[in-house]
Design a protein around this nucleic acid. Sequence first.
DNA 1: GTAATTGCTCTACTATATGTATAACAAATG
DNA 2: CATTTGTTATACATATAGTAGAGCAATTAC
Lengths: 129, 129
Amino acid sequence: MFIEINSNSDVPIYLQLAHQLMEGMVRGELKAGDSLPSVRAFASDLGMNMHTVNKAYHYLEEKELIQIVAKSGVIIQPNVVSKATEEKKQKLVAQLRPYVTEGLVLNLSEEELVLMVRKLVQNIEEGNE
Amino acid sequence: MFIEINSNSDVPIYLQLAHQLMEGMVRGELKAGDSLPSVRAFASDLGMNMHTVNKAYHYLEEKELIQIVAKSGVIIQPNVVSKATEEKKQKLVAQLRPYVTEGLVLNLSEEELVLMVRKLVQNIEEGNE
DNA sequence: GTAATTGCTCTACTATATGTATAACAAATG
DNA sequence: CATTTGTTATACATATAGTAGAGCAATTAC
């Protein structure tokens, strides 16, 4: 599981970390039951602050993708991959909307947008760039 | 052109405004050559601050969707809908990536994601919700 | 049982983003 | 000439992002 952080990106560090962990889950590199490094160890490895890793963990916990066990130090993901609630799907749609709009205003066709998504799915599942 | 701002949303007001103007462009309600209200008038209409409207306008100008003519007061959109540069498409793909990842980790299939996009395109073009 | 590790919390500081607010300037418009 | 225009400047409040250090209580390892 390689993590690559771009400090020049406008995407916050903790989100970059969380996103890449999510991609690891999709790829099966992080399976249900696996544990993640401690916030201190991970922060040290990645050259970032403990609190930043902590924030990424809590972000993933809020999405019910991992489970943080109180003072036990172990972090496991029980229901990954989980079921998509209708509520979660609606939220996702709302978040996608401005980007689809931007595609349309850039004169991309529906088919071009669909192809974009298909390629993205491939890249994420194969772990490309 | 109805603008509806949700002050409870976590999406900044100026982005909500910009997004809805973009949807208006997609729908053809805002055509090339049309002018937009002045920042003061628009802000007054929408019950928000002048600077917030100004920020939305500059956001759209940066995307080359509108043209702000110096101190002339007129705002026109010359090349809407414009051509999608390869650079712009790559940027869009990068922005879409975390959301597609979230869909996958929610156990949505590629086809479900594609259907999501198709429905979004329809809703945006028809001006639904 | 002791020591190390764990997640968690608290405080603190810096920087940036967001939104509101007022004022003023220079150019275009009526 | 007066109004309207986008622009700029300053100011203030709040929130987010990131770093930093210290400490607590429970679990884990030896």
